[in-house]
């Protein structure tokens, strides 16, 4: 254990931050913070943006960025909800409705695959910088959503959808959390135990060298955009269950929040680096802050922006001290220099 933290200093630091955050809210809010409803509330909320963050993590590791996932996710959710609403009515059995919902979610995933594929094509085949390509696609998807809904929310979902969303698996795991756990395990497996994960880190570090090493970089980057979009679309479908509707601008704050989480976990869009455990801890930290802050009655929702923005800036500034020119790196250089001398 001690060895693990010696090797993963950053993980240790995140855990200290986590403990500090927990301590802060325990002191200020007391037992209210540790209530069962609080805990289950958290477990209901973080899978939404947790799934999206996992997807975006793949993009970041490969040295790309996806700015389109919110717009694409909303578009897919709108289509899926429209489909479900059109194909269900009050007289149908739960089983039949479940089937329609399943098809709806499948539609959202398929749209995700398509959207990710387009992002990938723009980036790999046309050499458009990923930021630009995905901002443009974001405008397009948002345009579709607005045109389809005239800016209104799509409502009328069968009750079953949010019932399932609020149900527990095995009696105690909230359904969204269950989805997140599956998503997390798959992501961890992909990154740690497959050649895809290994290649992803190498592409993120130097895509050209990877190409010269007989690695199909174009295919893998397209695949990565697809994975990212599928994860975020599933996150958006979880969001639909909490909102009971779909709208063109739901989740627009998630872009900021997901990037914050990844930066907090030390994952930058420069590519080549990212530990999934760190990302998990960062997700949990952000959720705890979000829930804890909501317990202060005098704070409105926009206060959260202040905290997220401020936190991102502080983490960024501190991270220059940790890596790069900061004290960790300097210490490492000194150590290496001393070792060379001996």
């Amino acid at each position: 254990m001690k060895n693990y933290f010696a090797k993963n200093k950053y993980t240790a630091l995140l855990l200290i931050l986590l403990a500090a955050v927990l301590l802060f809210f325990t002191v200020t809010q007391g037992s209210k913070f540790w209530s069962a409803s609080m805990l289950s509330g958290m477990c209901m909320q973080f899978p939404e943006f947790g799934m999206i963050t996992l997807g975006l993590m793949f993009c970041f590791i490969s040295g790309n960025i996806d700015m389109s996932f919110v717009a694409l996710g909303d578009f897919a959710a709108i289509i899926a909800v429209k489909y479900i609403v059109a194909h269900t009515n009050d007289t149908m059995s739960n089983g039949a409705i479940g089937g329609v919902i399943f098809v709806g979610i499948l539609i959202s995933v398929l749209i995700g695959i398509f959207g990710g594929f387009i992002n990938g094509i723009l980036v790999t085949m046309l050499n458009i910088p990923p930021v630009m390509a995905t901002i443009a696609m974001s405008l397009v998807w948002q345009g579709f959503s607005t045109a389809l809904t005239r800016g209104d929310a799509v409502t009328g979902l069968p009750m079953l959808y949010s019932e399932v969303g609020h149900s527990n698996v095995l009696g105690f795991i909230p359904f969204p959390l269950f989805i997140f756990i599956i998503g997390f395990v798959i992501a961890a497996f992909l990154l740690k135990c497959t050649t895809y994960g290994e290649k992803l880190y190498m592409i993120g570090t130097n895509a050209k060298a990877a190409k010269f090493s007989a690695i199909n970089t174009k295919f893998l980057i397209i695949l990565t955009f697809i994975i990212c979009a599928v994860y975020s679309n599933l996150g958006c479908m979880i969001m639909v269950s909490t909102m009971s509707s779909a709208k063109a601008d739901y989740g627009s704050s998630y872009l900021m929040r997901c990037i914050l989480i990844l930066v907090l976990a030390g994952v930058l869009p420069d590519g080549g680096y990212g530990k999934i455990m760190d990302v998990l801890f960062a997700i949990v930290i952000v959720q705890i802050i979000s829930s804890g802050v909501n317990m202060f009655p005098q704070i409105n929702t926009y206060y959260a922006s202040l905290i997220w923005g401020g936190l991102l800036l502080i983490v960024l500034i501190l991270s220059t001290k940790m890596t790069g020119d900061g004290f960790f790196a300097k210490k490492a250089v000194k150590k290496a220099a001393a070792a060379n001398k001996n």
Partner: peptide, 8 residues
């Protein structure tokens, strides 16, 4: 630029 992923 073509041969190595230096930070790996």
């Amino acid at each position: 630029t073509e041969g190595l992923c230096l930070r790996q």
